[in-house]
Computed example of a mutant assay.
Amino acid sequence: MTITITPAASERMRQFLAQTPGAAGVRFGVKRTGCSGFGYVVDLATATGEGDRVLEVDGVPLVVDDKSLPLVDGTVIDFRRQGLNASFVFHNPNATGECGCGESFTVG
């Protein structure tokens, strides 16, 4: 299982974690949504549950549920600022297609 976080994404995640003492980590996974099938989920994990795995990536605890794990294996998480917009960007080798906005993806 490999998930990579760029320095920019790591810094942003650390900022979120610093603002929420006691958080279990950053939840990363997927949910069924969007025009292509799956959408990414990035949120603070207040706790871990059954079926969650905690991966330490560049010192950031990532909480990934067992169902998402095979869909996000190999993903590189980046954080980009463009003008007034800022967002996480995902480079997922498992994605076989994406919607036009890049918010959702399909797997083959």
Rank of each mutant, 00 (worst) to 15 (best):
P61D: 06
G49D: 11
F28E: 00
V41E: 13
G39W: 04
V63C: 03
P21N: 08
V54Q: 08
K67F: 14
E56F: 08
G25L: 02
G51V: 00
L17S: 01
D58M: 00
D66W: 05
D58H: 03
T46R: 13
V60D: 00
G22S: 00
F28Y: 10
D52G: 08
G34K: 06
L62S: 06
K67A: 14
A45G: 06
A24E: 00
D65L: 08
V64E: 01
A24V: 00
T33D: 15
V57H: 03
E50D: 13
A23P: 02
V30C: 13
T46E: 14
S68D: 03
V30N: 12
A18N: 12
A18T: 12
G29L: 09
S68K: 10
F28V: 11
A18G: 08
F38D: 07
V64N: 04
V57E: 09
L17W: 02
V54H: 03
A18H: 10
G59C: 08
G37I: 08
K67G: 10
R32N: 13
G59Q: 04
L44A: 04
P61F: 01
K31E: 15
R32M: 13
Y40V: 07
G34Y: 01
L55F: 11
K31H: 15
G59E: 03
V54Y: 04
D52Y: 10
L55M: 14
P21Y: 09
D52Q: 09
P21A: 09
C35G: 14
G49N: 11
A23R: 05
A47D: 06
L44I: 11
D65Y: 09
Y40M: 03
G49Y: 12
R53C: 08
V60R: 00
G49R: 15
L62N: 03
G34A: 10
G49T: 12
A18E: 13
A47H: 13
A18C: 05
V63F: 09
G39M: 11
E56T: 12
A45N: 02
R32Y: 11
